[in-house]
Nucleic acid binder design. Structure first.
Lengths: 257, 257
DNA sequence: AACTGTGAATGGATTCACAGCA
DNA sequence: TGCTGTGAATCCATTCACAGTT
């Protein structure tokens, strides 16, 4: 449990090291832990064991402990983790101690829904501005915000200190929008358009493609169907008919990314 | 390998070759390759090199070749891959030779958007029915479909051969909806509600949590900011606003990964 | 000459199993 | 005793580099 921190070892109790560089897989799970912790806090739990939190987050406990150990986080042996403290630590690491301003570009079908999505507001973000390229949409009011023309992006992004952009435009427009976001100083992009974006070094892009998620499920449907109708191994290549071949999506683990 | 084409044959399972069991990471990338291939086909390309396809899909060429080799797919050395053939192979493996019926539960903000999302229709899926638990929403017409009460789910799922369900309800309702989907014979679930679902073995769940995606980006923002400025600070219980908010100005020069 | 397919090497992530602390 | 934190072992994924094919 002894953790080293780069630069200074003041024995400040409860202090968190600067920013440990976490494995990406860990980073991707921290938000899920955070959500589970908030649930626990609301239901009156002050402490929680790794087993309990792992169950609430849909992972196994060894993974959870390893993830938290990367934070340098302290649980108490024999007891568990302090819920409130762990929430603080994770929120700090994720940079959620400030409410981050987000620009949303594209107020079509999906954009409308995102603009109204309460989950953003309740989990650390503030949609600070809406943009669209279609003049007939500019001026429209959505969830208390007026849609601005994309040309105003740079100006507003600077004024509102916007560092995160969400692209909810058609694929054809996405690269151009990304370029404009980057030019306006945005360094993180969440892209809902079904296309690859190219951005300069130092800009992070995450992609959410709804159809791709369904296609992955479709693969598993296809495989399940082919397994039930072809109990024995298929032709070609000496397949292993091992029962362990299934990707177990049991009652405890139901999530993947 | 004697991989036959899906072609106009019926979806009779006995007639098709067994599916190779692909690494999950490969499965998750195949839809992206497929999208890139469709783009290439539309722009008149008959063949494509691993280098070219990799660029279009946003991966490196070694990974792409390894992925495709798992399919048993044949490119031609010295030439590349046949675009049309590769599309067929990937669509076959992903189970997209049939248009799969999908049930969408929850027609709130997000549900509305999903119901109208053209990408589902153009990429292998048919939204066959909409459901909601709120009686005031039942009967409403969205994108040509009438919203049904969730109680009718089992009946309609059977009639429409629905094996895939999408949950776009609030978190509080999601587990109950998942149970009902499973009871209705659904074996794959795409969950947009921010919660962990528990489902029986054999049911696949994928989760999309929009706030989590932003929180992951937030982490990277935080890290970028901490690299360019402050050394070490942390919350010691009382939240002190972090020094140096964020200089949103430019600065796309900085870190690597 | 150009490109694929793949064994081998590397690097990450997950899991195991237990030492050590409350 | 009950639980965390962590080295060691294992598993999976990525990358390298080149043999082999057209």
């Amino acid at each position: 449990m002894s953790q080293q921190r780069p630069g200074g070892q003041s024995g400040q109790p409860g202090a968190v090291p600067a920013l440990p560089d976490l494995p990406e897989a860990t980073v991707a799970r921290l938000p899920e832990y955070l959500r589970a912790l908030h649930n626990l806090a609301e239901t009156g739990h002050d402490t929680v064991s790794s087993e309990g939190l792992a169950a609430a987050a849909g992972v196994n406990s060894a993974k959870l402990r390893k993830d938290l150990s990367h934070l340098g986080s302290y649980g108490t042996r024999g007891v568990g983790y302090d819920v409130a403290l762990l929430i603080e630590q994770i929120e700090y690491v994720l940079g959620l101690t400030q409410r981050r301003a987000v620009a949303l570009v594209g107020v079509g079908n999906l954009g409308h829904a995102l603009a109204g999505y309460a989950g953003f507001a309740t989990r650390g973000f503030r949609i600070a501005a809406l943009f669209d390229a279609d003049p007939s949409r500019v001026g429209e009011q959505i969830s208390g915000l007026v849609v601005r023309h994309i040309e105003d992006l740079a100006e507003i992004a600077a004024a509102e200190s916007i560092a995160i952009g969400v692209i909810a435009t058609p694929a054809a427009a996405a690269q151009s929008v990304a370029d404009q976001l980057v030019a306006a100083g945005v360094t993180s992009i969440l892209n809902f358009a079904p296309c690859v974006l190219s951005v300069p070094e130092g800009v992070d892009v995450r992609k959410v493609d709804l159809a791709i998620e369904l296609q992955i499920l479709s693969f598993h449907e296809h495989r399940k169907a082919s397994l039930t109708s072809l109990p024995a191994t298929g032709p070609t290549g000496g397949l292993t008919a091992l029962p362990g071949g299934l990707s177990a999506t049991g009652t405890e683990e139901a999530v993947g990314t």
